[in-house]
Amino acid sequence: MSEPVSPRCAAGRLLAGSVLVALVWCGLLPRLLTLGPVYRHVALMEERGVDPSAMYYTELERLPLRPAWVDDVLILWPSSVRGFCAQGKSAAR
């Protein structure tokens, strides 16, 4: 937290900062989008429906998972381990 400033000075600073942000966000950043590599990156992400800004997997519009991996989380255990688990289950019954 900074020291208290006069209302006039605070308003001036806030105004100057807001103008700078508006210039960057409405002027510079949209122009960057037209650059080749940036354009290609954004186009690919849009085409695949990927949201790179997601912080956690629940925030993704589409989670690229194989359906089998979601429906059966143990599907990729090697057959020997699956066999061992199945034996354990039948023994328990």
Partner: peptide
């Protein structure tokens, strides 16, 4: 700020801008 297309597709997530907004207001106006 985080929803601008360039910012969003380069993973500059909202916590960064929330911190920046707070820092700016805190330092500019207290």
């Amino acid at each position: 700020l985080a929803a601008q297309k360039t910012v969003k597709y380069y993973n500059l997530e909202y916590p960064l801008w929330a911190l920046a907004v707070g820092l700016f207001v805190g330092n500019a106006a207290g």
